[in-house]
Design a protein around this nucleic acid. Structure first.
Lengths: 162, 162
DNA sequence: CTCACTCGGTTGCTTGATGCAACCAAGTGT
DNA sequence: ACACTTGGTTGCATCAAGCAACCGAGTGAG
């Protein structure tokens, strides 16, 4: 079997990528962070193939990043929640979000903003609140549509996000 | 052709992953950041297949993350350097490094440390120097072996990093 | 002056991962 | 009774990655 690991790498970046570096994994984590907890929600939000999503969810649960909880007994229906390990991926997501905003966003600005729940300030690079200056964590913030959202929507054909 | 993109995603995280989310891409960036600039150096350091490395380097150059410069004219020999766009991936690498350190490192500690060039302090989460408290960027820091380096080395079979 | 070696790739082949669509099982709604 | 929903699984086709061989232009050793 061809592994998704990076043998011979003595580096925590490589270790991280072995766990969440596969295609879709990080976007699934982001989706769950944004409140999409069910298989169908995640699937339609991401457009990922169902068998792949199934494999990724299972893998993320095994790795202790997600936790699967039944919200209905019979037939079994599940929701996926982030563990602390999963929530700790927030800084990495913020870093990628910032980089994408800086280099891939249109002139209108970022399609999505992260705001500090407590003070409403925009969360900037490194997950620091621009308004109150606090160093934030996953639970301190939430995502909202940004100034470039409409433009990004218009720029897509046959896209149906959310 | 099967793209490496995430169609329909109005999100800068997805945009970033379209650019640097492919297997090996981020590790190549990290390698160049650590001073491995030549094809052969990167190839032997990472153990990536040569055709894949070739494709990734070309892609990273096209995306403006790396810059290819000739260091010898005839026969042409090249080195790869990070552009500002590439250097701006540093916070994302730091975030992944920290996450890996926290959840994948052995009891001995992190295999690699990032230290602030100026004051020698260890760079912690979010790229902040533990010693002087400054918010750092790629050029302010360098990588050194950490306390868990030997243990991680011993834990690998036939690994030959660096 | 020739032969081996280096460097930075490219080419061909094989195998693994991904996408797509169909199917399934146990409810629920009409 | 029949379609629909949910959370998947299975089969098949295609794409990407790994491996090894090859290549072209120098360079160094004898």
């Amino acid at each position: 079997m061809l592994r998704n690991d990076y043998p011979g790498q003595i580096c925590s970046v490589a270790k991280s990528l072995e766990v969440i570096g596969e295609r879709w994994s990080l976007l699934i984590v982001r989706d769950v962070m944004n409140g999409n907890r069910r298989f169908g929600e995640i699937q339609s939000s991401l457009g990922v193939a169902r068998n792949v999503l199934s494999a990724r969810l299972q893998h993320l649960v095994e790795e202790g990043i997600l936790e699967r909880r039944a919200y209905h007994e019979n037939p079994p229906r599940y929701e996926y929640f982030l563990t602390d390990k999963g929530l700790d991926l927030w800084p990495a997501l913020i870093a990628l979000l910032n980089w994408g905003d800086k280099y891939s966003a249109g002139p209108e600005g970022a399609p999505r903003l992260i705001v500090h729940k407590e003070c409403g300030g925009v969360v900037s690079e490194r997950g620091i609140c621009e308004s109150c200056g606090k160093l934030l964590h996953a639970r301190d913030a939430r995502q909202v549509a940004g100034p470039g959202f409409e433009a990004a929507l218009a720029g897509q054909s046959s896209a149906d996000p959310d």
